[in-house]
Design a protein around this nucleic acid. Sequence first.
DNA 1: CCTTAATTTCTTGTCGACAAATAAAATACA
DNA 2: TGTATTTTATTTGTCGACAAGAAATTAAGG
Lengths: 234, 234
Amino acid sequence: MNDRTAASQAERKRGEGAKFVYDILRDDIIDLVLPPGSPIDEVQLAERLAMSRTPIREALVRLAGEGLVTTLPNRSTVVSNIDFLNLHTFFDALTLMYRVTTRLAAEFRSDEDLEIIRARQAAFSRAVEAHDALAMIATNRDFHAAIAEAGRNPYYTGLFCRLLDEGRRILRIYYSSFGDHLPRRYVEEHDDMIAAIEARDVAGADRLASAHADQIVRQIQDLIARDRRQPIAL
Amino acid sequence: MNDRTAASQAERKRGEGAKFVYDILRDDIIDLVLPPGSPIDEVQLAERLAMSRTPIREALVRLAGEGLVTTLPNRSTVVSNIDFLNLHTFFDALTLMYRVTTRLAAEFRSDEDLEIIRARQAAFSRAVEAHDALAMIATNRDFHAAIAEAGRNPYYTGLFCRLLDEGRRILRIYYSSFGDHLPRRYVEEHDDMIAAIEARDVAGADRLASAHADQIVRQIQDLIARDRRQPIAL
DNA sequence: CCTTAATTTCTTGTCGACAAATAAAATACA
DNA sequence: TGTATTTTATTTGTCGACAAGAAATTAAGG
């Protein structure tokens, strides 16, 4: 599953066992290493990570709380499916969170926030230049998470990060499709958003975030429309 | 702590042990039976509920995921504090969720949804008539949760219910203060919202929800301003 | 040969126990 | 008397084991 398993099985501090397996599972789920529907065997995981079932169970409970895994009572727990039938609720919430977090960032950002946001944008830009679709997906998420952090509303950041992670899963399915016609446009839109945030232009930030969200939603919908097989399989 | 402890300690089905203690703790936290800062002793709870520490730990992990308890590593877990310094983030998110969920309810509600909402409003109305502040708080929450359900966006309902529960905790602190001048106005506002939802008047629902949220936020702020001692203690 | 019932296997939910980590208490020392 | 250090005690994090439930497999009956 992952190299980390062998690497850090040796010494682990007391109390971070659950976090350890939580991070591994979370990454693997979001990166689709564990595709939707994959069963998660507690005993098998315990053996691989050389620990007892207890911390693994704790990680699973947390993941279930975030909706990343689904626990069937007295039966196996599986990676949650992507609900393609109700994607519009996802798009709706995502768009709203894009707008709200960017607005708040324009209002409350500190200079340090701006630095972090710029660094994330640089990473995203590099990924685009390198035509690395996977890195694009990841760095794009980090960019917007940084903006949300600058807005300083933990309720929004919490929901937004969940949505961004779910978006990563969806994009991951289609990542091969947009390797060619790369959305360099996104880089420019990001730059515009940064400028609005720096200028504390709340209305402008809102407008840009809204347009940006529409762009992304439209692209995902295009990708789904172009490839109709996958959704059924999942 | 609660009568349920003695009542249903006898036979409990396999698999619902964690849910059992989760529900108890959740209610007690929201009703301020366990005030913010209260330590939660796993062993003590295990004895009282006549079960092992394992399901109790699972419940605590879930509660921590929802932010209702805070786990200090290798130390006790305590009921999360109410962050009075950053209440504005709470009010902001609450207002937005009021608006969004009511909008969506006006758009997507079914006739069955409307029935449920009306039933909840009736319960709220009864609580107001009976001058039962505690019941008011609880039924008000249920009313808005029903509206959110009618909107059919699980991302919104999830966040909104968390916010409503947090609001219950805050109101609970001051519940004695508004026993006298009862906000019958809220009942009318609720009725107006129901009418807008029934008429599928999205814009109207939004406007009403916005005004309603402002009302509630203002009342809470008044209560806090009138009683300045508590916030420090918590 | 197919359907139904019994049996086995496998996975989970729960338990009691132990050890690490921290807090509290007791002791030593200036 | 006040501070630093050791000792004790309490509480958590982790473990291995066991039993209940469900699925898979086998056996029985039409």
